[in-house]
Design a binder for these strands. Structure first.
Length: 672
RNA sequence: GCCGCACUAGCUCAGUCGGUAGAGCACAUCAUUCGUAAUGAUGGGGUCGGGGGUUCGAAUCCCUCGUGCGGCACCA
């Protein structure tokens, strides 16, 4: 028997017969380790204790104290334990797949009767029985035919299909605890008793399509979360409760920002407070874009279907457009229009007016474009996914050679905006060529590389989303996360050589001939609606002072201070600060609480002393401490804080003055 | 769009077995002039999401439509 050398994390090495299992290695170290062990890490791979090791390797024995492998195994085996529990309670249930996900796992079942929320506690109880039974985990290698026959005999067609779709002809690993069996590549715990029985919770039931295909059977998915112990579970559940308090839908009501109602599903009724955030953000973006060399345009809302047919959207997205029919003069055929679902075809119409020269490129054409898309009902989500929204949209018309530089310039603009708005944790995803696409592979190679290079040049990493690009070109997605960690695409940049072609855009190049420009579709915020939703959740409603809809409330303690309160409000408003007086006949405690709940960043309290001394007691949101300051000092300080970041002294992104000067793009470029 | 769940006063929620709807906050009026997260009293407020059905009788049971929530699918 050949000998192998296994090296331990402390650098020591031992020699064993080839084929020794990780469990035997653990036993060789100590009997207690053999008992506590859950798995091994062999040359970096997560290794089942029962698997043989055939060659020299590094090895580490894992116990429940090793968080990464432990959580992986706990969650993984809980998926199997849950499937066993479900089949024990409802034997007519078919099992499909059950992977580990962030914080837990899910398992998809087929059963004719729906699971109810009450069933979750029944299943949990059964799972705890299985854990307490401490059944040993056992695996066997089967060949495919035997496995397929087994699942045919058991009337488990989903498993049959699963095996048949596994490429190659390799044998499969079968897995048991007790008399329950599943198909699984492992690794696994030694026995079900190694799962902490009080560290998991079943969370929800949901529908999910078999194999993610909406044309196929809808299965029932049960989600669970699991941690190494009860305290970690409790901490996780507590975090979810805290996150729910930051939900923009809840805060939107509490702060009186907006509402939505049945007659206009997926569309926002902005209230004065919310609209203040919106317009403040829009003013800011307008300045940022102008100083970055964009020109701003505005295009029609209702556009004849002919343009959408030319652009190709009618074929692909007709069902997702709001159709507007007009019956002029009772003509036999009504004119069919669509509310614009995007701005790009209209921007090409502007580009196409007159002749464009290569000297005009890159031409950066921006619009705060109101769009309407008939999104599927199930997709709507607060103000984050809506049917009526406004993009901070722009299209950069440029040459192939300008793609890298323009993309890098855009990423820098986006990074500067996100930093100004308090976001430091965002990610870039590069979506590459899908199966169904147009254009040559060489062209895809070139453009995908251009986007990746631009990211690196701007100093940012990205992750790949293979096959997720649009049919005409790759895209960068810039994602932010909401209160409970769901990711939302906000910024985007897409390379599109197709639309200029379909809409016959061209420019005259150095050679005197007409050439096609490339279009970069790009947005920093994405939609104002979604971005404001994220902004609210990120700041838990406590927006930066310059964005806060109600910046200062001047609250009187006695009615003798009323006139001074109006004077203070007037002084603040004279400096552009959003201030209002609260002279109601209420106690200061009451006023402080109400405006704190309403997320007003600064409360100025006025009593007899303050009237006397022309001061105010300054209370910042979230701080119990107050500071008495003179009125002049307060006005000066708050006026400074109310200034948008791009207008502050030393703001790094382009001269603030230039923002208001109307100059052609090329000249701004020269300035930049 | 699909699966499941929900919808009761402006908001948050209670409402037993089918017997004619309640609380707190908010709002209004009055009293109170108060020093940093809820002063007290009184009062008004409801087509129980819409429609249909079962029943002597429906917030409650059934059907249907709408909207929302959690997922899935979708996201030009």
């Amino acid at each position: 028997m050949a000998q192998i050398t296994l090296t331990f994390p402390d650098g020591n090495a031992r020699h064993y017969d080839a084929g020794i299992t990780a469990a035997d290695v653990a036993a060789d170290i100590s009997p207690s380790l053999r008992k506590k062990a859950i798995s091994a890490t062999v040359d970096g791979a997560h290794w089942d204790l029962a698997w043989p090791i055939d060659a020299d390797a590094s090895i580490a024995i894992n116990t429940l104290k090793d968080a990464v492998p432990a959580l992986e195994l706990i969650r993984h085996d809980l998926a199997h334990i849950m499937a066993r529990a479900v089949q024990a309670i409802w034997p007519d249930t078919q099992v499909t797949i059950g992977p580990v996900i962030k914080d837990g796992w899910y398992y998809d079942f087929y059963r004719s009767e729906p699971f109810t929320p009450d069933d979750l506690s029944t299943i949990e109880k059964k799972m705890k029985e299985i854990i307490n039974a401490r059944d040993d985990v056992r695996t066997e290698i089967w060949d495919r035919d035997r496995a397929i026959q087994h699942y045919r005999d058991r009337a488990e067609p989903y498993k049959v299909e699963l095996i048949e779709s596994i490429p190659g002809n390799e044998p499969l690993r079968m897995y048991w605890h007790g008399d329950w069996q599943d198909l699984c590549r492992g690794p696994h715990l030694q026995n079900t008793g190694q799962v902490p029985a009080d560290g998991f919770k079943l969370m929800s039931i949901a529908g999910a399509y078999w194999r993610g295909d909406s044309n196929r059977q809808m299965l029932q998915r049960i989600y669970g979360v699991a941690f190494a112990n009860k305290d970690d579970l409790k901490a996780h559940l507590h975090m979810l409760e805290e996150a729910a308090k930051r939900d923009h839908r809840k805060l939107g009501r509490e702060m009186d920002l907006y509402h939505m109602q049945e007659e206009a599903p997926g569309q926002v009724f902005w209230h004065p407070n919310g609209w203040t955030i919106y317009t403040t953000l829009q003013d800011y973006m307008r300045r940022k874009q102008r100083s970055d060399g964009y020109v701003e345009v505005n295009t029609p809302q209702v556009v004849n279907r002919v343009l959408w047919e030319k652009s190709g959207h009618w074929d692909n997205y007709q069902d997702h457009m709001f159709i507007v029919e007009v019956d002029e003069d009772h003509a036999r055929e009504k004119t069919v229009n669509a509310l614009k679902p995007m701005n790009c075809p209209c921007h090409v119409q502007i580009f196409n007016q007159g002749l464009k020269s290569y000297r005009d490129l890159p031409l950066r054409m921006a619009e705060f474009g109101s769009c309407n898309r008939y999104e599927p009902s199930g997709a709507l989500h607060g103000i984050m996914r809506v049917r009526g929204f406004t993009q901070d949209d722009a299209h950069i018309f440029c040459t192939d050679d300008q793609i890298v530089a323009e993309t890098e310039k855009f990423i820098k603009l986006l990074a500067s905006v996100y930093a100004d708005l308090g976001f430091h944790d965002w990610t870039i995803k590069l979506s590459t060529r899908p199966d169904q696409r147009i254009g040559s592979d060489e062209s895809w190679d070139r453009v995908e590389a251009a986007l990746g290079d631009a990211c690196k040049a701007a100093g940012y990493d990205f992750t790949l989303l293979p096959g997720e690009g649009a049919f005409y070109g790759p895209k960068l997605e810039f994602t932010l996360t909401d209160a409970i960690g769901r990711e939302w695409q906000c910024g985007t940049l897409q390379v599109d050589p197709n639309l200029p072609d379909r809409l016959d855009a061209n420019y005259v190049a150095q050679d005197g001939a007409k050439h096609r420009p490339v279009m970069l579709h790009r947005a920093v915020l994405g939609s104002f609606e979604r971005f404001i939703g994220i902004l609210i959740e990120e700041h838990a409603g406590k927006l930066p002072f310059w964005l806060a809809p109600r910046q200062v409330v001047v609250a009187t303690i006695v009615s003798d201070a009323d006139n001074y309160a109006f004077e203070v409000v007037a002084a603040l408003r004279a400096r552009g600060i959003r201030a209002e007086a609260d002279t109601r006949n209420e106690k200061i405690n009451y006023k402080v609480r109400e405006h704190s709940v309403g997320r007003v960043p600064v409360i100025l309290a006025l009593g007899g002393r303050e009237v006397e001394e022309r001061t105010a007691s300054v209370r910042r949101l979230g701080e119990a401490q107050t500071r008495v300051m003179t009125l002049d000092a307060i006005v000066a300080q708050l006026a400074a804080e109310a200034t948008a970041p791009d207008l502050r002294a030393g703001a790094g992104h382009g001269p603030a003055v230039a923002a208001d000067v109307d100059v052609p793009v090329t000249e701004v470029d020269a300035l930049a």
